[in-house]
Amino acid sequence: MSVLTNHLDLFLYTFGQTLQLFAISAVLSLVLGTILAALRVSPVPVFRGIGATYVTVLRNTPLTLVFVFFVFAYPLLEIVKIEPYTAAVVSLSLYTAAFVCEVVRSGINTVPVGQAEASRALGLTFTQMLGNVVLPQALRSVVPPMTSTMIALLKNTTVASGFAVVQAGSIRDSLSEQGENVLFGLLWVAVGFVILVMPLTYVQQVFEKRWSVAR
């Protein structure tokens, strides 16, 4: 307990950073992932190709390598200078977007073809059909796997500790520098993550309940 109470500031600050990393990356990956899913079901073959290639490349690459690319390799290209924190957000977002894309696409596949046909027959364009008819129904059916993807993202933020981005995963380093009991420190980190994940599970239950009534 003393490990926690003596270093409460450290714990609060780093978990705050974790939350921030998670929140920004979650929003970006949800948006990008949904756009990618739209590309993958598009009638235009080139768009489908772009979506499929993106998923293949990003989903098959270890997250650590994505980080290595954006923290070490990308700066050498000298396009736009980015801080390690930004590099972490970019890595997490791009990587998670590939998974979000596949979750959304599986949701799109659960929507009966008739829904799309009725939209087209009414004169809706592809984008209108996707935005007003297909995606709203697709997202309703993917709440559980989407929550899992977001929980994975939350935990994946700790990878950033290897790249000079301070967050909950860095607690171990700080504690060992100060000669604290690292084992107990890590236990508290684990407890912290359990507490952070619980609201996500709650959000999942709320959405599942609300959307199960509404049809």
Binding site: G114, Q115, A118, S119, R120, A121, G123, V133, Q137, R140
Partner: peptide, 16 residues
């Protein structure tokens, strides 16, 4: 298509 109404066997009302 906006000028051509269509009614399907399986209704296809928007479920949500």
């Amino acid at each position: 298509r906006a000028d051509v109404g269509m009614v399907f066997q399986s209704f296809n009302l928007f479920a949500h």
